Amino acid sequence: MDYYAQLIIGFLLFWGIIFVIGQMEPFKRRGLEVRPFFFVFKVRNVNHFFDRFLKYRRTVNLMANIGVGAGAVLMGYAVWFFLDNLLKFSFSPSQFQEVTLVIPFVTLQTSLLLVYFFASVPIILIVHEFAHAIVARYEGISLKSGGIGLLAVLIAGFVEPDEKEFKAAKPRQRIRVLAAGSWSNVILATLVAALLIFQPMFALWMPAQVRPAFYGPPSGVFITNFYSQAGLQSVGASVGDVLNSINGIPVLSLTDLNDMVLPVNATVSVGLSTGGTQKTVYVTTFPNPNNQSKGALGIYGETYYPPHLVVPIMPMWLYSFLLWLAYFSAIVGAFNMLPLFPFDGEGYANALIERFVPPKLAAYVRYSINGFALLLFAGNLIATALKAGFRPL
């Protein structure tokens, strides 16, 4: 049975179970609503819970004010990114960055990525919706409910403000509420990235212009995993070790290692740095799975940049989870401010239009901005399809 057949069967089985549960009266009374391929779980009477955070009113007010400016910057970045990317597709195709919707089991298929995604999304949504809720309560806007939902395989979290009170609020108040979610996601991404900043692998995510402030020049290959029990793993090498020489020849980067032609079934000396201690091991090569005429050492790795501050190296699973948490949170923070329905950026832009644009022109400006944002967003998806077709992440 192929992947997509298993996916369809699992999908239908999951939703069949959810539908049966949704018909049970105890779950209905607790706020569970189920429709075909859609469910939402609502918690009512949430105002008192979020009011507890208002004892830090000065902090909430300060962060909300910063969020207004951050929201404008994020909106500008989202529009610039999509516009610049389309121009690159037209005039410099090699620099075009593919844009793909993150849809679990469809565009996101790798088991580890799915684990990181489903572990990250609840944290991102909780932070995002808590920020909306706390600022809404600061502005005196009541909350009708809060909860989570699932449409097919797309997860959503929400707080539901009183619609009449939200519409009656001043534009500045609505802007503060709407910007809070994305701003909180940027804060989350920044804090998580700060935990990773001196981890060796994180150097690869840093712009080359910034990297020297935190890391030295490349000095080896950081072992991230093994694909064979032969080779280096058989002589005691571990994930986190740094390979820096073979037969006395320096290996300063992954490119150096890939360019090196090793004989098959030959014993070579390999320089390894383990926890700062240098040692030499002797290992017998075996045929490279991708090129039987070349010898292999059985490792996956990345170029190693020594951090200026030595910190304990995280387990790879923890590093990978935190990296994807920061990445997904930053993506949500930035592109949620695109001025396009149903993103928060649309409400932010509409509040600005209401405040600064004459009423006679407001509808025209609003539809023009939405249309332009839709063209940018759809244009990037179409350009990606034309360049690469359907390709999972």
Rank of each mutant, 00 (worst) to 15 (best):
S228F: 07
Q209E: 14
V210T: 09
L204H: 07
P200I: 06
Y215S: 04
Y215G: 08
I223Y: 09
V210M: 14
I223M: 10
M206P: 05
L195W: 03
P218K: 14
F222E: 02
V221Q: 07
I223K: 06
A203M: 05
S219C: 00
P212N: 11
Q209M: 07
F214I: 06
P217F: 13
Q199C: 03
A213N: 12
F214R: 12
I223S: 12
A208S: 15
V210W: 13
M201P: 02
Y215V: 08
R211T: 02
M206L: 15
S219D: 12
P200L: 06
S219R: 13
N225F: 02
M201R: 15
F198K: 05
F198S: 04
Y215A: 02
A213M: 10
G216P: 02
A203C: 06
L204I: 01
A213C: 00
F198N: 10
M206C: 06
F226L: 08
P200S: 03
P218C: 04
L196T: 03
G220D: 07
L195P: 01
A208D: 13
P217D: 04
S219N: 12
F202H: 07
P218L: 06
F214K: 11
W205R: 15
A203Q: 11
A194L: 15
I223W: 09
G220I: 05
P217W: 10
L204F: 05
Q199K: 07
Q199T: 01
A194Q: 02
P217M: 12
F198G: 00
S219L: 03
A193V: 03
R211Q: 09
F198A: 00
Q199G: 08
I197K: 10
N225Q: 13
L195A: 12
F222R: 06
P212A: 10
L196G: 08
T224R: 10
Y215L: 11
L196H: 04
V221F: 08
L195V: 04
A203S: 15
P207G: 08
I223T: 06
V210G: 00
P217S: 14
S228N: 15
F214E: 01
A194P: 04
W205P: 00
F214N: 05
L196A: 10
G220N: 04
S228V: 04
Q199A: 07
F226C: 09
W205L: 14
Y215N: 10
S228A: 15
S219G: 14
A203L: 11
V210C: 01
G216F: 11
P207I: 11
F214V: 03
P200W: 08
V210Q: 14
P217N: 08
T224N: 13
A208Y: 07
A193K: 09
T224I: 12
R211F: 07
W205M: 12
S228H: 04
F222Y: 15
Q209N: 02
A194S: 13
P217Y: 11
G216S: 07
N225E: 13
F202K: 01
N225P: 01
F202D: 00
Q199L: 06
Q209H: 06
W205Y: 14
T224M: 13
S228L: 08
L196N: 08
S219Q: 13
I197S: 05
Y227L: 02
I197N: 03
